[in-house]
Each structure stands twice: as C-alpha cells, then as structure tokens.
Design a binder for these strands. Structure first.
Lengths: 240, 240
DNA sequence: AAGCTTAGTTGTAATCGTCAACGAAGTTAA
DNA sequence: TTAACTTCGTTGACGATTACAACTAAGCTT
C-alpha cells in the first residue's frame, strides 16, 4: 500500500525481501510401538533453542516442488524416514514464535508402521528419538510452539480414528482384524464390539484377504488382510 | 545446508532474504443469497493477472499479529467485511503458482449472513462482487490457483454441514428452525426429516428461543431461535 | 367460520448397535 | 489320540435409534 511494497516489476509488486516472513514446514510423525503412540523428535544442534527437542522441520527451499514435497525432504534429511502417509495439519504464524522474526510454519502429520523403520535414523541429523505420547503431549519441553503443533497432530489423529480407516497406516502391510481392532482401541482409549467393528470394516470394503496365517500364541490363527490396491484412507458413514 | 543459509546471527541461521518464499493469505468468503451459495470475488487491479477475478487476499505484513489476523485485515481492506466466522482451510505452495516466485498461501474460509453485509464493499478496493457457486466452482476463470482453493472451501463447508452446526453462520442472528433446516437442505442437496433434524438440534443444546415470531406467509408463525451466548460451532455425535 | 398453509408433535415399523453366546481352528498336555 | 485351552469369527436376541408418515396447532384468507 505504501512504502511497504517497494519493488514493482512487470510481474507485479512484492514485499521487500527483508519484509518477507520466514516459512518452514514441521512434521509430527507418529508410530505405535509397544501398544503406545510415540512421536519422533530431534534435538536441535543450532540456535535458537539449541539442545531442545523439536519436531523435524526446516525452511522451504527454492528447489522444493510443493509444501508437501518440502515436508518429505525435511523428514528424510532429519530422520532418514520416507513416510507412506503424510497429511497437512494446520499452519501457524505470528511475529513471536521464532526469535529470528515473523515466521510461519505449515505443519504436517505423518504416520508410519514401526516395522518400516530401518535403523538409519539421523543420517545427517543430530539425535533423533521416539518419545511416548502421554495425553496429548510428550515428556520434553519442546522448542518453538512445537508442543502445540504436536498436540494438534495427536488430536487430529485421534479424531479421525472415529470415522476413518486411518489406523491401517500404523500397521504393517499385512495384519489381522484383531490387530486392527487393537489399534483402534488403543487410540480411542475404549473397547469396541467385535461384530460391530468387523461390520464397519466390511462395509467400506477396502481390505482384501491374503492367504497365510499368523499365530501369536497357541490358538486359532487369524486371517491376514491388506489394503486393496489404490485405496487411501476411507471414511465411514457412521462412527466406528 | 551450503550457501543457501547465508546470514548466521546469534539467533541462528536463516535463509537469505531473496531466498524466502512469498507468503500470502486468501479468504474464500461464502454467503447464502436467494437460497444459493455465493462467493465474494475481487477483480485484480495490478499484475499479475490484472483484470481477473480472485479471492480477496494479500501478503503477510510485519504488523500482522497472526495468520488469522492477517486474513481478517486483508478481508476488511479488500471488501470492507468483518466476518463473524473464519476458519483456516489449507495451505498451498509451490514455485509456479505465482509468476513472482516461490509462493505459499494460507487459505481461510469465512461465512457470513447476507443481512450482515452493509453495502460498503470495495472501500479501497477494485470491483468486488458475489458470484453464485455452481457445483464447486464459479463462472469466472480465477487468478492463480484460486479455483482450486475455492473448490476446497466449498467442499469443506459442505462436508461440515453433515456433522456440525456450522450453517447457523449463514443465517441472521435470529432465525426459525424451518429456516435452519432449509439451509442444511440447500447445502446438502437433499431433504431432511423434520423430526430427526429437530432432535439433533435439540441434543446439542446450543440454541435458545427468543420471544417473538415471524410469518413469511399466511400460516402458523414459527418460533425464533438464536445461538446461546458463548457457543461456537458444535459437533453432532452422528451425522445430521 | 370454513378452508388453506406451514409449524411442530406423535406414533409405528424398520433398522442398527450392544451384549452375549456359540462353533471353529489351532496348540498343548495327558 | 484326545481332552483342554485359547483366541478367531459368526450368529442371535434384545433394546435403542432412525425413517416415514400421520396428526394436531396456529395463523391468514375468503
């Protein structure tokens, strides 16, 4: 409007470079290990907040092809993980959340099965560690506003468990229906009725049986299932 | 990692100013007039896309106190509207969506009752006009990727109608239950059962009756209702 | 005052969810 | 070899919820 937009090229006016906010992506990546939700955090090696735990994240770069691409790059760089499930969560921005100036971050939620984690964490990274989620937070005091972002991610995931097939992304490619029901129960914090659960799963018709079995103990083996090719997260008509 | 992050102050390294993406907010503001959903568009007065219709939007400024604050400021500047309902939609970013360089936008959805629109559109703005929504789009060919953003906004609103009280934000402060049901039916594109609808509304207990009446025609007058103080959008246990 | 129209309520049949029992299929142990 | 045990997967009964439709209420019009 005034002196704020200084450069006026043929392509149109843009804010002066020094007026541009910083833009980052941050990824809250969650997995299920030992039947509890865990979040992957990295310890910051540089200021600000050196030494504090944070969500894997980083600045947008000119070679990124999209916001989601930037999130995948950052996650791979900082943790070595290529996640199969990535969903945009929300963006946060204000003048104070980063001491380096007006900054905004586009937050993502990623889900991964714990068996997909090859132990090549921290390629060029500092310490990276899985922390158990208690309630909607985690033990360490996170850098920036990452505690709030992580809480938002956990809330989002728990909410979507009620009406989507999202929990399959926390399981290996092949799993049994009792496995899947267990994940739902863990995330919801309550028991589900076996027949009602199986009815919901059958309705949306996104799983197919695979020959073979699995017996965790001495009893009747459960059928193995996998997601039908081409099916992403499916929504139920009603809550689970 | 290399020469990309050039300035390294005590506060930590940041990308060189010229490497920073442009950051904007865009607002898809919707209303209901003549029983049809309409979106407010503004005609661009400057490059790029001069003369094309676009969502009201603009660059983040250093005086903005948050992303949502920036959305409210931009909406007020471009259209003169102070919206009662504003919700973050999604962020979009890539190197090509704006010819001026790598840019990202944080998109918002706003809802407003048509009776709240004082006719002071376009204070310092160019032409602003309400366009009817057909399907999930609008007649003109929008600037940038705004058609996609608008489609996302419409889809989001239609989805939330199924399980929230969001449509009240499209009605005046006082309204009747047949009015409200009509809005639900318009947005959902299907008829709803009267008794089931009223049961849902009663369950969530977010309306209170106001004395007085309203008779649109020669028949039994309907009770007027308003949102109870302090109640924002409420979620239903089941779909409407 | 009879008739018309829409508001709001009530009743009933069909559907759905909850709870529990049952048969199935494997292992383990006598 | 077979009886006992455990979990898988299905079935059935009962109560709750929903869908559909009829009914009464309350205004205006003629």
């Amino acid at each position: 409007m005034t002196s704020r937009q200084q450069k006026s090229s043929a392509a149109g006016p843009v804010p002066a470079p020094t007026e541009r906010p910083l833009l980052t992506v941050d990824v809250a990546i969650l997995t299920l290990r030992e039947d509890a939700l865990h979040a992957l955090l990295v310890r910051r090696a540089e200021p600000p907040h050196t030494g504090r735990w944070a969500l894997p994240g980083g600045f947008i770069r000119s070679e990124d092809i999209s916001l989601e691409g930037a999130a995948r790059r950052v996650l791979l760089d900082k943790t070595g993980i290529e996640t199969p499930y990535l969903e945009q969560l929300e963006s946060y921005g204000d003048p104070k959340r980063d001491p380096r100036g007006w900054s905004a971050t586009v937050a993502y939620v990623a889900l991964i099965a714990s068996d997909r984690l090859e132990p090549r964490h921290g390629r060029n990274a500092d310490a990276a560690a899985w922390w158990p989620v208690v309630g909607a937070s985690v033990a360490p005091n996170l850098a920036f506003d990452h505690a709030r972002i992580l809480a938002g991610a956990i809330t989002r995931v728990r909410a979507k468990v009620e009406y989507t097939t999202l929990p399959v992304h926390l399981l290996p490619a092949k799993f049994t229906l009792p496995d899947l029901q267990g994940v739902y129960e863990q995330l919801l914090g309550r028991k589900l009725d076996k027949s009602a659960f199986r009815k919901r799963i059958a309705e949306v018709d996104f799983l197919e049986p695979v020959e073979g079995e699995r017996r965790p103990a001495s009893n009747r083996p459960a059928q193995l299932w996998r997601v039908k090719p081409g099916h992403r997260t499916v929504f139920f008509d009603r809550t689970i």
